[in-house]
Measured scan of single mutants.
Amino acid sequence: LLPSFEIGAWTEDDVYCWVQQLVRKGDSSAEMSVYASLFKENNITGKRLLLLEEEDLKDMGIVSKGHIIHFKSAIEKLTHDYIN
Rank of each mutant, 00 (worst) to 15 (best):
Asp13Lys: 05
Ala9Asp: 14
Val63Trp: 10
Ile83Val: 12
Ser29Arg: 09
Lys77Ala: 10
Met60Gly: 01
Tyr16Pro: 00
Gln21Asp: 12
Ile69Thr: 13
Ser64Tyr: 02
Leu57Pro: 04
Gly8Ile: 07
Gly8Asp: 15
Ser33Val: 07
Leu52Ser: 04
Ile62Pro: 00
Phe39Gly: 01
Lys40Cys: 00
Leu49Asn: 03
Leu49Thr: 01
Asp27Pro: 13
Gly66Pro: 13
Ser4Gly: 12
Leu2Thr: 15
Gly66Arg: 14
Trp10Ile: 01
His80Cys: 12
Glu31Ala: 05
Ala36Cys: 03
Asp14Ala: 02
Arg48Thr: 02
Ser73Ile: 09
Leu49Glu: 08
Thr79Ser: 13
Val23Ala: 15
Lys58Thr: 10
Ser73Leu: 09
Glu53Asp: 15
Val15Thr: 06
Lys40Arg: 10
Ser29Ala: 12
Ser64Arg: 11
Cys17Val: 09
Thr45Tyr: 08
Met60His: 07
His80Asp: 11
Asp56His: 01
Tyr35Val: 04
Ser29Gly: 11
Ile68Asn: 01
Asp81Pro: 08
Phe39Asn: 01
Lys72Asp: 05
Gly66Ile: 10
Phe39Tyr: 02
Thr45Asn: 12
Asp14Arg: 01
Asp27Glu: 06
Arg48His: 04
Glu76His: 09
Ser73Asp: 12
Lys65Asn: 08
Arg24His: 12
Asp59His: 09
Leu22Cys: 08
Lys58Ser: 04
Pro3Gln: 12
Ser64Leu: 07
Lys65His: 11
Phe39Thr: 01
Ala9His: 14
Trp18Met: 03
Lys77Leu: 05
Thr11Ser: 11
Arg24Tyr: 12
Met60Tyr: 04
Ala36Gly: 08
Gly66Asn: 15
Leu1Gly: 13
Thr45Ala: 02
Lys40Trp: 04
Ala74Asn: 06
Leu38Ala: 14
Glu76Asn: 11
Phe5Tyr: 15
Asp56Thr: 01
Glu76Val: 04
Leu22Asn: 06
Asp13Ala: 04
Ile62Gln: 07
Gln20Arg: 10
Leu2His: 14
Gly66Val: 11
His67Asn: 06
Glu54Phe: 05
Met32Gly: 06
Leu51His: 11
Arg24Gly: 14
Asp13Met: 02
Thr45Ser: 07
Ala74Met: 07
Thr11Trp: 02
Glu76Trp: 07
Leu2Cys: 14
Ser73Asn: 13
